[in-house]
Design a protein around this nucleic acid. Structure first.
Lengths: 132, 132
DNA sequence: TCGCACACGTTATAGCATAACGCAATTGAT
DNA sequence: ATCAATTGCGTTATGCTATAACGTGTGCGA
């Protein structure tokens, strides 16, 4: 599950996300890549699908957007559950990991014999700068 | 923020959600209410907006669906963060609360001076029955 | 009675995501 | 080297999710 060499489209999409200073929607990515020959949403979604699989991009379910992983180089999947704090004013995203939270959730799922595949933790609110 | 008497539309939408045995999308709710005079998505979305505000319905961000709160009568907002386990096979949803998780996340946000407004915790996977 | 807030209805539109088809390039086992 | 399988890619069309903008009616307090 570690990242193989990216294809051209995957690299383009990843590059856009990495240079962005916040999460982007698939259609925003599409617009940014029209000059590079992108014409259709599927070109973006297909690349995103792979980047998510490789763990170098995250999907923010609560805002239908995507963001480059904050740990370039490493495989984020190995850090346990990823949590995000999303500022609703400036849309900056902070990514963090808390093993104690992972542990509590895993305890719960084990107790219920629930087989967890993918866990989403997203905190929406205001970052320090915007809350002032 | 506790629930006042529901309007006609709000009651209809809530009733559909309560009788359903799993989360429903807004458009599914719309279809179920066509016989009651519903014609447009906004009729559903406006009712849902209020029901969410009253804390009697939850939105599942990761599957763009809505579910009646598992604690009829009580105000769910007072239980702290709500977490969900969603079975991707039978789409049953289990709702739970874990104060230790709340605590860890609040510690993190406090440390970052992030003002949390709304937190989403959703675990997708397979329930005990479906995993067998 | 006037003004305001709110629920509601309707039409139109915006935004997000995938199905289905076909072609080209790559890989890898024989 | 060759053929089959896989993967990526491009295109068109479509479906699902959500909101904007406008207008109507109703209840209620100043």
């Amino acid at each position: 599950m570690s990242a193989p060499a990216l294809t051209k489209n995957q690299a383009l999409v990843f590059d856009v996300l990495e240079k962005a200073d916040g999460p982007l929607s698939a259609y925003t990515i599409l617009d940014k890549l029209r000059d590079h020959g992108f014409r259709a949403p599927l070109q973006v979604y297909r690349a995103l699908e792979k980047l998510l699989e490789y763990g170098v991009v995250h999907r923010l379910e609560s805002i239908n957007s995507f963001v480059a992983c904050a740990h370039p180089g490493e495989n984020c999947h190995s850090h346990g559950i990823v949590a995000f704090a999303i500022c609703e004013s400036c849309s900056q995203v902070m990514e963090f990991h808390d093993h104690e939270v992972d542990h509590r959730l895993m305890d719960w799922t084990r107790g219920k014999k629930f087989k967890a595949e993918k866990t989403t933790i997203e905190i929406r609110g205001l970052c320090e700068a915007c809350a002032a």
